[in-house]
Design a protein around this nucleic acid. Structure first.
Lengths: 339, 339
DNA sequence: GTGAAAGCGCTAACAT
DNA sequence: ATGTTAGCGCTTTCAC
């Protein structure tokens, strides 16, 4: 399905009256070619409409200038802007970006490795929080390809990570609640299985400790980060009759669930309860009350991760195993002063 | 940056004691190879961990099995599920999917064409509603590569389109409002420049006409589909003091703006005003009141578009220029009976 | 049913 | 500064 007969390097060479090697040089190492020659080649390229055949180049150079991105769900509001950042930086550096949507399906993860093993991608960005299922087996048993994790670190593996500083962000968030006079602050979204949740809980604990507020175990509610889990957590607190004045939620989706529950019970928000989120996903500014939250520098995370990966590809050794970017406090209407 | 020495077809051939041609056949045309030979080859492949070098294959076959997707914003909530559908179908058929995030920047659009002209992609999916800037010029003046438009049709070009039936969907939406007793129904989001808006307005008009309700021009408000435009439109109606009982909004983002405006004025929704959206983006179920809307079959749209593109790639002629999928009425809480 | 060999378009080592 | 040539790994005639 070729839409047209493409010019090759030979056509250009013929037209310019030079050898193909010279054309190649004029393109890739312009300084090594005489000015006049370079001019002729440039003109011949323009006249023929020549573009380098990337397949031939990749075959020869053993690199594709492509990066594979493995994500469980491209549609996740938390991913998409990171994706944009990744793509922007890659594109700027002449790299293309290949999308692998795994839906957490091990078979699909394995399937995507073919892009790596067949030389169609030089490096890997992992959103999944784990090595692709199938790595370290079969033909892939050798060393791993250059890769960088975003969003979620890969435990027990030497994969550099770029992401938000969850601990610090959660600490700042909780301190903000404390600064507004809150002392009975719930944490919604405890999950020992999730590194991100764990870190945010740590930040919460540290902030309370720093303010000399004792931790009340009844104020720490399990949750997996979904809106439904937030709703359920709030309901649980009512059942237990152990109510806080403020909810610090592990993420905005959870906060939304809490708000839904509170609204359904006809509380007047934020007068009766303050709610704090984390992430700043797009609709957080549109909920009622609009959500006070910690904003992840998603675009920057994407750029930084790609930068790091390309450095790895260029043979540089990463100076640090983690790049943590600061989350920014976004004050909206869901948190109010108390006491 | 090779992470390991990869086995080639020669290694497999040597181990199996056959020629590389036979290995190639055993992989690509298994029936043309004797059972016993095929068995030996299969085993050798397993032992060596061989995977076909996609670059060499592409160079030889002049096709990459890659599809380029050009989208103005990968993060758009309306895009992401279409993306998933596209990717799912492509992956199922052995194709990879390359992302081009253009941010409506002509330069970036042009830049991405290199993937096409350098043979890195066989076909094109367009979210942009127009041909990439730069097509029909320079070396690309020949015929266009196989492509399919989604989300927004490409005017004045023979590009097959797969999308939702906007006219029909808007008609159904408006009829739903009418069936709930509404007769003063506003349309928020008129825009002559946007095909999608135009079609949805047409559907609205048709429904009113069908019910014998005269069109009141004051009930049709301009808007570009953003939340802000929805807010502004509602405010405008208050200024004009021409109020409907229901708002049919060109999309959910607009509907959200209307809700924000109405909430800010302390109206009791949906008792005092009904609001209807279009799209069913993810947060529509979480707004208060939760939004009654028309759901776009986004995943299906993606799959159908990719199916069509791959058929085009296989040399089939498209049977129709448009594939329109039905939107589905999702009844939630923002529309209520009146009168 | 299988093998030998050409060649896809390019880069890089070597020669001049 | 430029040209000649080998070869990246594969598919596909063309012989047998």
């Amino acid at each position: 399905m070729q839409h047209q007969k493409l010019a090759t390097i030979e056509d250009v060479a013929a037209l310019a009256g030079v050898s193909i090697a010279t054309v190649s040089r004029a393109i890739n190492e312009p300084t090594k070619v005489a000015d006049e020659t370079r001019r002729k080649v440039t003109e011949a390229i323009a006249r023929t409409g020549y573009t380098t055949n990337a397949m031939a180049r990749s075959l020869r150079m053993r690199r594709s200038n492509m990066i594979l991105i493995l994500a469980p769900d491209v549609g996740d509001p938390n991913f998409s802007n990171i994706l944009v950042g990744l793509e922007t930086e890659a594109s700027k550096r002449g790299y293309g970006v290949l999308i692998g949507n795994t839906q957490n399906d091990p078979a699909r993860e394995t399937d995507y490795l073919r892009f790596i093993s067949s030389n169609q991608a030089d490096g890997l960005i992992l959103f999944t929080g784990h090595l692709p299922y199938g790595f370290g087996q079969d033909g892939t048993e050798g060393r791993l390809p250059p890769m960088v994790a975003v969003n979620e670190p890969v435990p027990n593996a030497e994969v550099p990570f770029v992401g938000v500083d969850n601990f610090e962000g959660a600490r700042i968030a909780t301190e903000h609640l404390i600064s507004q006079g809150h002392r009975r602050i719930a944490f919604v979204g405890r999950s020992s299985a999730r590194e991100v949740n764990r870190l945010r809980e740590e930040g919460y604990r540290r902030a309370l400790a720093g303010a000399g507020i004792a931790i009340d175990p009844r104020m720490i509610i399990d949750g997996d980060g979904t809106t439904e889990s937030g709703r359920a957590a709030a309901e649980l607190m009512f059942v237990r009759d152990a109510l806080p004045t403020a909810f610090f939620c592990v993420n905005d989706a959870t906060a939304l669930g809490v708000i839904i529950s509170l609204n359904a019970r006809h509380y007047d928000l934020p007068r009766q309860f303050s709610i704090m989120g984390f992430d700043d996903i797009s609709f957080s500014s549109f909920v009622t009350p609009s959500l006070t939250t910690m904003k992840q520098p998603r675009h920057r995370i994407g750029e930084a991760a790609m930068e790091l990966l390309l450095a790895l590809l260029a043979g540089e050794k990463p100076r640090e195993q983690q790049v943590l970017l600061r989350a920014e406090l976004i004050v909206r209407n869901s948190v109010t002063r108390v006491g």
